[in-house]
């Protein structure tokens, strides 16, 4: 089975600034890949390239064995096989139900079928009973859970999460982390999670990717990465000796 993503010589430049440089890396299917690194290290750029929101400046990206395209029907077809949750998800000015159902609506899924999937997704994130509430009135933690349900209901092959717990209280962090673990376990969904939280990375990751000034410095299985980092920059980052 092909990998979820294969990156070859991928770079991203914004003017003179090289935001990302990944000479080559494969992201295995069914795993939780956690991307860590200081601010401005290229984590979000990587996620946006993977989600086809913007093309790399150079290099190629392959998604589940298919070359990535960034325009037209080709992009849409690939993008519909993955889903992304932002750090501060935008809630549509509609009910929780309508928010979660949005992705199904644009795929023209029949209402009766959609209703079943939406109910399951809402239940999974623990928001049953709140279907009719206006989503823009939810707390940060609840909105994040709606965003997760909205992404999950589409049953994507890959779920991309950009710091999904950055602005949440500890209780909400635990809830969201449990949901992430559960969907990975239950649906064998590939998850790519960007986080600043090293403890969270340790709790969730199968594989860790460390970005530093746009460079992919080190990758490896979580245990090995945290216990025996190879690169001194990784060690410095993990121990907090490198101040950024």
């Amino acid at each position: 089975m092909s990998d979820a993503f294969t990156l070859e010589g991928v770079t991203k430049r914004y003017g003179q600034l090289e935001a990302l440089n990944v000479p080559g890396h494969k992201l295995e299917r069914g795993k939780i890949h956690v991307v860590i690194g200081p601010n401005g290290s290229g984590k979000t750029s990587l996620l946006r390239i993977l989600n086809l929101l913007e093309p790399p400046t150079t290099g190629t990206l392959t998604f589940c064995g298919q070359p990535a395209t960034y325009q037209g029907a080709g992009r849409l077809a690939l993008q519909r096989r993955m889903s992304m949750v932002f750090q501060r998800p935008v809630m549509l000015h509609r009910s929780v139900y309508d928010n979660v159902a949005y992705g199904l609506k644009v795929r023209r899924v029949a209402r009766s079928e959609a209703a079943k999937s939406v109910a399951q997704a809402i239940d999974m994130v623990g928001l049953s009973g709140m279907e009719k509430q206006l989503a823009t009135t939810l707390s940060g933690g609840e909105a994040q859970r709606v965003a997760l349900a909205r992404a999950m209901v589409l049953n994507p092959e890959v779920l991309l999460l950009d710091e999904p717990t950055a602005s949440l209280d500890p209780a909400s962090v635990v809830i969201v982390e449990n949901i992430i673990k559960e969907i990975n376990r239950q649906f064998d969904m590939t998850i790519i999670l960007v986080t600043h939280n090293l403890f969270q990375a340790r709790r969730l990751a199968d594989e860790v990717l460390f970005l530093w000034q746009g460079q992919l410095v080190e990758t490896g299985p979580a245990e090995k990465f945290f216990l025996k980092p190879k690169d001194p920059r990784t060690s410095g980052f993990l121990t907090g000796e490198v101040v950024y």
Binding site: S83, P89, L92, R107
Partner: peptide
Amino acid sequence: RMLAETALTLGAS
């Protein structure tokens, strides 16, 4: 921008 990207990530054309 945020709305459009949210829609795109949810598979909207």
